[in-house]
Design a protein around this nucleic acid. Sequence first.
DNA 1: TAGATTGTTAATCGATTAACAATC
DNA 2: TAGATTGTTAATCGATTAACAATC
Lengths: 214, 214
Amino acid sequence: MPTHHNISIAVIRRLPRYYRFLGELMNVGLQRISSASLSEEMGLTASQIRQDLNCFGGFGQQGYGYNIKELHDQIGVILGLDQPTKAIIIGAGNLGRAVINHMDFGNRGFVLEGIFDQDKKLINQEIKGIKVLDTSEIQSFCNVHKPTVAVLCIPKTATEKISNLLIECGVRGFWNFSHYDINSDVEGVVVENVHMSDSLMTLSYRIKEANLDK
Amino acid sequence: MPTHHNISIAVIRRLPRYYRFLGELMNVGLQRISSASLSEEMGLTASQIRQDLNCFGGFGQQGYGYNIKELHDQIGVILGLDQPTKAIIIGAGNLGRAVINHMDFGNRGFVLEGIFDQDKKLINQEIKGIKVLDTSEIQSFCNVHKPTVAVLCIPKTATEKISNLLIECGVRGFWNFSHYDINSDVEGVVVENVHMSDSLMTLSYRIKEANLDK
DNA sequence: TAGATTGTTAATCGATTAACAATC
DNA sequence: TAGATTGTTAATCGATTAACAATC
């Protein structure tokens, strides 16, 4: 079981990308690949690939390269995809429903166990076989099911209050789609802020810059 | 008009966050703020804030700090939010519809002008007042409307072909939600890969790591 | 064995932080 | 003027890249 500490966030953010590319190569039927070939495939340096992988152990073999399936599966284990983490989602509006229907939680290391909303029209509806519960039931649900992670698809005005409640209820991680930055000064609480709007504005800047010369 | 070159991507990615925080402070009715106060608010160093802002010019005043509204609006201009870029969206499934309904394109520097899907059941439906067109009409639509950006909410299997078509049609930027990495070796084409799955797997890793000691 | 390619150390590069003179 | 705070240069830190000995 890999228990590697102090891995930089830059490396961690590249892991899912390695996982994805190796998965493709696997599907294509390839057995082995060198860091040089993979670097060409992925558009980064062979050095970086070897450095990254060596944070977690020697997966390669001198003179041979890396076994694609083995490396793919190992990265899956490093990411924790084999030990599903219990998750709930707060907010079943447009975005929440799209996340529920679109995301393959099972293959990303999570199992979705609860959906909450405050809208009376949504409560008791079923989405992907899970019944939408009233947000007032979050606390009692958490006491029973003890989810580790909450996906937040709620307006920014509600995020601070809800995230504090959830931390009290034992939630240890947030996948946060709201436009509010959760500041997790609480020990052991992890936040992944998605901030789609920020991403879109970044594109706006870069489009403009790319066309300055024209 | 700001025409600043060679700004690092790290700085650019912080701009929307500054914009967001300054917007909040503005709404609260504040007039001015020092880099020191803003750094506390945002959880980064005052040095970094001053460095970042100085990439684009001297917005502050010694002994006083920054005028919140002025700085907010300037960053908006830097991001290009005042000159809306024409966009189309390809894919009106769960995710596509959520993006259309949920994203405030108008306040993020874009105007959504077209929606495309290949599903006969969706074609001719209206979403947010825009009629869904068949993907076969992309080319003729682009000839007339000349959109600059395409939002891709399609499966990864379709992404390479569609993105090549769009580049031929004059599209210069992609907001890509598919699990395929568009490689924009084409001069002047900008890609913002969203990769929600990667984000989720990153959370899986970090949750696991944060709880190793337990 | 010879060739290939890793794992790992050292060098480089870039980004962040600290310091302080300039100035409002 | 004195105090505050910026703009900017210099120092530090960390991440990426290059190089090469180890080894399959």
